[in-house]
Simulated scan of single mutants.
Amino acid sequence: MEAVDTVVNICDYILNVFTNLIYLILYESSYKNRVPLFFDDPPPPTFRSSTLLKLSVRLKCFGDCLYLLDGRFNQLHTLYVALVNLHRTELSEKEGDLPNLKCFSLSCNLETSHHDEIIFPLLNRMPNLEQLGLYLLIHVDEIFIDGNHLKKNIINRMPRLNQFTFYISSSMFTRNKLNLPSTEDIQRTFIDFPNNEIVSYVDYFPKAERGLCHIYSYPSVMECYSDISNNFPGGLFNYVRMVSLFDEHPFEHEFFLRIVQSFPFMEKLCLINYKPQTCKQFYESNNDNLNLSVIEYSFLSELVIVHVHDDYIEQFLFDTKTYLPYNIILHVNYESLQRVTNYFKRDATRINCAKINKLNLGGESKCSNSLEQYFPYAEISYSIIY
């Protein structure tokens, strides 16, 4: 909270010192270094500018975004907002139109189910918007967000809109639901869409009783790509910094090669998959591990492999399969790590483990000399629940 307060004070200071400020960009290139602005109460009266035209900022919640649009920056024509969360707020009901705003971008990496109540009313306040970017994770009850939804609720209501880029992943529970749409059904809703290239596909996970629909304009400038499965269609995503993988079918070595090729600047990778790799047995039975391409994660700084089968811990820690950069933060289950490293004695995992500088262990774990020696440069922390 102290860092957040400092950011607010710095912004207030900047606005008061640079009284003719036109552009203000409060953004770190690395996602993990970004500290969001957060207002406990309405910002002070000095937090305003009559000259600011363009603002790019990371905020804690949707209410903070509304504070920026309450008239204190009345000449603003371009606003880029990255939110930590998207909770409901009553502030939007009290605000008027934003006729000067021509370009608006909103992103959030946490799922929301309140898009109809907060996002669309905000967009309706922007009658002269020409460029719009939406990068959202949305939970729906009955119908995925598709091309028809975007045309009805956004495009048809914005006559001046000439550029619309987006990444929207909508999820819903599928228990007792019939006639669920296929990928082809979703793709048909974009036949007459104004954008040149739209990627869309649907995943269904029977065990989790969950469905996911990904829709996005391509090429994309999104920074987070969530819940990638084996159905991932590929492509190049130079702006993505955080990736999460989930499937009820195994991820093979070649899949991870596709991931690193599609996301060359990925900084954080989260993985959930309890299915063992099937090709692993083939490689081992043919003594063919040496013929695998070693996958290099050039910019990776954080790896979360807690809810996974042991095969995926091997996938990332075996030096014959993966080349990790130095100074990695690793989140992993202690007992799984113990098995994969053969009680912290295995040579095949020693090189990559020596590159870890923070090791966060979940499950029943205990400190030992062998663990500390195996991770010689790591700050080790323990958590019973992960």
Rank of each mutant, 00 (worst) to 15 (best):
V4D: 06
T6N: 14
I10R: 11
D12M: 06
N16V: 00
I22H: 14
I22M: 09
Y23P: 04
I25V: 15
K32H: 14
D41C: 02
P42Y: 10
P42T: 08
P42D: 11
R48D: 03
S49C: 07
L52S: 10
K54P: 02
C61D: 15
D70N: 15
R72S: 15
N74L: 10
H77S: 08
H77L: 00
L79G: 02
L83H: 12
V84G: 02
L86K: 01
H87E: 14
T89R: 04
E90D: 13
L91H: 12
L98P: 04
F104Q: 01
E117V: 07
E117L: 10
F120T: 14
L122W: 10
L129V: 15
E130Q: 15
G133I: 01
L134H: 04
L136F: 09
L137I: 12
I138E: 07
N148M: 06
N153S: 09
N153H: 13
N153F: 09
I155H: 07
R160Y: 14
L161P: 11
F164G: 07
I168Q: 03
S170C: 05
N176E: 13
L178R: 13
N179K: 14
S182R: 11
S182V: 09
S182T: 15
D185W: 03
F190C: 10
F190Q: 08
I198P: 08
V199I: 15
V199N: 10
Y201G: 02
Y201M: 05
Y204I: 03
F205Q: 05
K207A: 14
E209M: 12
M222Q: 07
C224A: 08
Y225H: 13
Y225Q: 04
Y225F: 15
S229G: 07
S229C: 03
N230S: 03
F232V: 00
F232R: 00
G235W: 05
F237A: 02
M242L: 09
M242S: 04
M242C: 03
F251M: 02
F255T: 00
L257D: 07
L257T: 08
K275C: 08
P276L: 11
T278W: 10
C279F: 08
Q281S: 14
Q281G: 05
Q281Y: 11
D288H: 06
L290I: 12
L292D: 02
S293F: 01
V294L: 07
Y297I: 01
Y297S: 00
S298Q: 14
E314Y: 12
E314N: 13
F318P: 00
K321Q: 12
N327Y: 09
I328M: 09
H331S: 03
R339E: 11
Y343W: 05
F344P: 01
F344Q: 04
T349K: 02
R350N: 06
I351D: 11
A354E: 14
K355T: 05
K358E: 14
L359D: 08
E364R: 12
L371G: 05
A378H: 05
I380L: 08
S381H: 11
Y382H: 15
